[in-house]
Amino acid sequence: MPSQSSSRSSRRWRSPGWFFVAPYLVILIAFGIAPAIYGLYQTFEVTSPVGAPYLSLTKNFADVLKDYRLPTASWNVVKYLLIWLPLMLLVVFALALAMDAKRTRFAAITRFVTYVPGAVTGSAAALLWLFMSSPAVSPIGAILRHFVDKSGSFLSDQNFALILAVMGTASGAGGWIVVVYGALVAIPQELIESAVLDGANAWDTVWHIKLPMIRSYIAFILIVSIAQGFQLFVEPTVISQGAGGQVSRTWSINQLVFSYATDQSNYGRASALAILLLVVCVALAVFIITRTRFYSTEER
């Protein structure tokens, strides 16, 4: 906050803004900022199973970075993001643009139907998909049986990223379709009409007017989804517990964080990896924000 004269700042303290922000601020400090600071402190505390704990700036980071599970988990998450993000963006924009082009009752129903899977919480959806991908009980078991190994297992570390990506799209796309559709509706109709008068067809309006107008939504979806994707945890955890041993317990990076904290009671390493994860997510968000000029208000 820029420095203020004392009378102005005291007026600020009494302004209704603080009144509205206060409840959130309490929660933010208690459950957001304070744990984060404590987590940051933990990052430097090294616990060894024998001997006293000690502080070190780099030990936990070094231990985490040379863990044999980290490269695999990172590659799994990257693979997942590479399949999931394009797939979801494609589904979201294709459906939202189609609904916007033909604003019929059918489109409204479609919008609702695509939203429904998103209402199922992550863990329940994971259980649902576990059953979907278990050949013995799946409604599409007859198809899956062509792809199973000798033991009759369909799930594996290899195809797990794909399954999660399809699952993530099914449950996540609906919400974004509603958001993007809302953004498309907000585009001034005159713009489209004048483009059509200038001879633009439906594709031209999509490419040259609608998509550029909602560019910041793409960035927003990407930022939120990348952060979400890197923190992938509930779905692989539920599925790997349900289908014991078919998928690693530390398939994703966040599961590795969890493993440090629970299996090994090593909060220092867990915090260190969580901080590294945060750095990556923030770096990617900054990259996307600058590349898409997310906050720029020009050209709008």
């Binding site: 278990s134 013995a136 190994d149 033991s151 009759g152 297992s153 041993g245």
Partner: peptide, 11 residues
Amino acid sequence: LSTLDLFDKNY
């Protein structure tokens, strides 16, 4: 020999 968990639904 199977490679499924003993309590896996498929097993």
